[in-house]
Every structure is written in structure tokens, then in C-alpha cells.
Design a protein around this nucleic acid. Sequence first.
DNA 1: CGGAAGATCCACT
DNA 2: GTGGATCTTCCGA
Length: 210
Amino acid sequence: MGSATADPWKPLATSFFRRPAEDVATDLLGRYLVREIDGRRRTVRIVETEAYLGARDRASHAWNGRRTQRNASLYLPSGHAYVYFIYGLHHCFNVVTRGADEEGSAVLIRAGEPIAGEAEMIAARGIEGAVRPGQVAGGPARLCQVLAIDRTLDGALLRPSALYLTRGEAVVADLVAAGPRIGIAYAGEAATWPLRFAVRGNPHVSRPRL
DNA sequence: CGGAAGATCCACT
DNA sequence: GTGGATCTTCCGA
């Protein structure tokens, strides 16, 4: 199409993530998340994110400056992965954002739309028959399952290798919906902050829909 | 050292 | 809409 159209497969520079988590969370919508396994690629287009603001955010694992063995990766420089295990079953994948300026801030990747390798993703989910949108990578744990993201990737730098992000197809501001984050009712006032973002009307977004 | 909670998902009603 | 699964991690005693 247009000659000025950027290559959607060009990796995002580390500087992309060196901004407040809220900005990164909205700007990540539409970008590609690429997972390479044995030379094969699985790719999703990110359609839903949440920002976690670090020490001042009661919903954040870095709330009040908490540092533990589990959340150590939250304190790595911008552009690293923070992967944790939750509920005894699931993994969740975050990108560390601002680094030294605002330690512990990150963006949770909540849902993606399959772009490449969808058959492998469906196999990884163990689902059969008619697959509906959102059933594949709609939800942070499902997304990790289909991309085989686990704690072996915790602390990894997100550059072209096993797991990285590319320019993808960015979303205009009018198509970004915002609302309160999911599963953090314990977080007091922070539970009401509109830090969940999704591509408006996209069927691959997790529930409850924004 | 024990208890409780958890940035979820699925099956069932 | 609700409850159970499942186990690591963390914190208080």
C-alpha cells in the first residue's frame, strides 16, 4: 500500500519502553508480539493491556517498594520481561517500562489476535472444533499458554530472539477503550484507576469486555 | 513454619 | 453468575 507504511515486523527499540507505563500500555495496542520456538514463529497482535505503576500502585507487585525473589525482574531496565506464576496454574507476561525513573512499573499483556502460527496456538490450547475469537489468546494466561511463555523467560531482554515486539499495526487514539483493571478488587482506590486498555470492538479482547 | 492469597480459567447451574 | 482447581510465594508468628 502506501510507500511510507512502516514495516510491521521491524522490532521495537528498547527506548520504546522507557516511558510511563500508561503511555506504553496504550502504544502497545496493535503491536506484534513474536515468539520463536525451534526456528518457527508464533505471532499475535496485541489487543489488550494493563498498566501497573509501581510503588504508588497498590495493585502492582512493586507496591510500596516491595522487592521479593518473585518480582525481581520488575526492577530490571525497561524492555525486559517480567513473567510470574499465579493461581497454581497460570503464567502472566509483563513488559518492564520506565526503569530507574519509576521503578517497578510494567505493562501486562492481556490479549492478542493470532497473526501467524494460529494452528500451533490452538494445539497448545488443546481446544478442538469451532474456535471463537478470544478463545485462543484472550486473557493473560491463555496468551502465555499459546506462546509457550513461562518463567524461563522471566528477566529476558525483549529483542529479536525467543520473544520480542515489533511495530505491528498501531491503533489510533479513537480506537482505544479504557477502564478499570481486572482481578485487583483488593487494591482500594487503585482498583478504580482506568489503566486497562483495549482495541475498541475487537473480538479477541478478554472478558469482561470493555 | 503454617496459613492465606493470588494481575485466572473452566465447568457447571 | 458462582465456585473449585492448584501451588508458589510471601508474611507474620
